[in-house]
């Protein structure tokens, strides 16, 4: 890779870094959300395991799924939604930055802004998907 390809105009760099920080916030939120969700679900699953063994003498791992469903106990963690939520800011930033190469500064900024809106949409859609019972 030559030095020429690596050189970036200061204004372009400022736009990339400025928007990059906003994308980084989305990434941070997504990671925090993943950690908190997993912690919360793990605690709920542990509580359910405790409840099953103490009151019904059942083992969570070997219990009949129908019984668990009737009790409203789910051991599922929405990994795919959590993972997509973490990947979205990274992927969208890369795509928006690549599409903006060799374009005027305002077009680069517009692409990055539109990308930020896409990340917001993806996050809200994934949240709704999980709330509706998706994993």
């Amino acid at each position: 890779m030559s030095a020429r390809r690596l050189s970036v105009a200061p204004a372009v760099l400022a736009v990339l870094v400025g928007f990059g920080l906003l994308y980084a916030w989305d990434l941070y939120e997504a990671i925090a959300n993943m950690v908190l969700t997993v912690q919360q679900r793990t605690a709920e699953i542990d509580a359910a395991r405790e409840f099953l063994s103490s009151t019904l003498d059942l083992d969570l791992e070997t219990a009949d799924p129908a019984v668990l469903e009737a009790l409203g106990i789910s051991t599922a963690i929405p990994w795919s939604a959590l993972t997509m939520n973490v990947l979205a800011p990274v992927l969208v930033f890369v795509v928006a930055a690549m599409l903006g190469r060799r374009r005027p500064l305002w077009q680069r900024a517009l692409l990055l802004l539109a990308g930020l809106a896409v990340v917001a949409v993806v996050t809200l859609s994934l949240t709704a998907y999980v709330r509706a019972g998706g994993l």
Partner: peptide, 24 residues
């Protein structure tokens, strides 16, 4: 604040996507 900005961006997303695509 950031979550509110996210809500605003989500509302603007279709317009931003359409406008950006149209212009570029």
């Amino acid at each position: 604040v950031m979550a509110t900005v996210g809500d605003v961006l989500a509302v603007l997303a279709p317009a931003l996507w359409f406008g950006t695509t149209y212009l570029l």
